[in-house]
Write a protein that binds this DNA or RNA. Sequence first.
DNA 1: GTTATTTGTTAGATCAATCTAACTTTATAA
DNA 2: TTATAAAGTTAGATTGATCTAACAAATAAC
Lengths: 219, 219
Amino acid sequence: MGSQTEENYLKALYKLSDEEGKISVSELSSTLNVSIPTANSMVKKMDAHGWLRYEKYRPLTITPKGKQVASMIIRKHRLTEMFLVEQMGFSWESVHEIAEQVEHVNSEAFFDRMDEILGFPKFDPHGSPIPDKNGKTEQLDLIKLSECKMGEIVTLSALSNSDKNFLEYLNSRSLSLGVQLKVIAKEAFDGSITVSYSNHDKEVLSKKVCDSLMVEKLR
Amino acid sequence: MGSQTEENYLKALYKLSDEEGKISVSELSSTLNVSIPTANSMVKKMDAHGWLRYEKYRPLTITPKGKQVASMIIRKHRLTEMFLVEQMGFSWESVHEIAEQVEHVNSEAFFDRMDEILGFPKFDPHGSPIPDKNGKTEQLDLIKLSECKMGEIVTLSALSNSDKNFLEYLNSRSLSLGVQLKVIAKEAFDGSITVSYSNHDKEVLSKKVCDSLMVEKLR
DNA sequence: GTTATTTGTTAGATCAATCTAACTTTATAA
DNA sequence: TTATAAAGTTAGATTGATCTAACAAATAAC
């Protein structure tokens, strides 16, 4: 393993490369709130660990080994979040900060036990997939709510953003995973969508919100 | 809060001062497996935090503030151990290493929730008292088994040593907290004691073992 | 296709936590 | 009570993670 710092860099690297393939040092530095030179020097260490490929002035690419190590950290993070919600009664908006610390605990048994107690969950409280012990995740076929058409009925299955503010916004609208949404209107000029669900029959959601709601089409 | 390193120094300081009142830099250094100069420089920082009183060449004394901070770390450690045993099914010999890491998590809510789920336990799995949110602990009137007289019947209530090897030794003899022990013989020359308990009717325990078993006299 | 802007790199400093070597003070023991 | 041993201190080096300032390369803009 690496240090906690290195683990945080690797996690950021993993997420950025998932989103964009190629990663720049400056993206990494801004994600981690460190200066560019700091990220630059850390990147060289991670190259030495074999977690990424680094060449001067070229974009970074994560290696299979880096992905493997990263997925184990993400596994620990997401299992912790799930445990906090399911076994300890925390709400989905309060678990991230705790999991951010607990994920660095070095004990396979600890996380395997969580996994077992939870019944080997495939997704965390925000709908993100939990890697299994081999780093494998279950991939659902999700699309953004913003891409849905009028009249479609979908299930809210994951969030592509789990900021506290956003989660609190969803709470205030009684939006949680598993809720069935029906698209009853789409505004072309601002991309906002009106949905009905549960006992809400006309809720207007902005484009920004709809971009962060990942849904599954009903078959 | 201080860094994890500082927290570990403070914990060691607290335990040593509990045992002996005055603490020397060298005791601290050997407890933490660092060199004497390292402990020396750290001690100056802890003095700056107001956790201890430091004067050149004089023994160290922990301050009330230091005790308070230390007891909160110990609270987190012992709650974690208890949670691991009671809620997650770990055995008492495997929880220390995990708790040693989890204790540094910075989240009151996390530990308060453990406390609540456990029903506000007063003692950890090794019988050590768990400080409450104000740092208060329940003090039992315990003596070493080695100090007991022939014929006495006592309850095993705590361990003054929780090394893995010792715990495994106790497991192998089916000795656990709450067991009632009857002293059926005492050897003067080596301090060993023969006890009976549960379905063991003649178990010989060395002086060293008896010194680590803290028992409560039955009234 | 030069120039300007953004991005990346190097150099050098700082801070925390550690070490070893050299020296000083306190405690122990002859 | 002085000599020796043990404990404590200071100085100076190292490593990891960070920073700013100065410079270099790649990309974008005209």
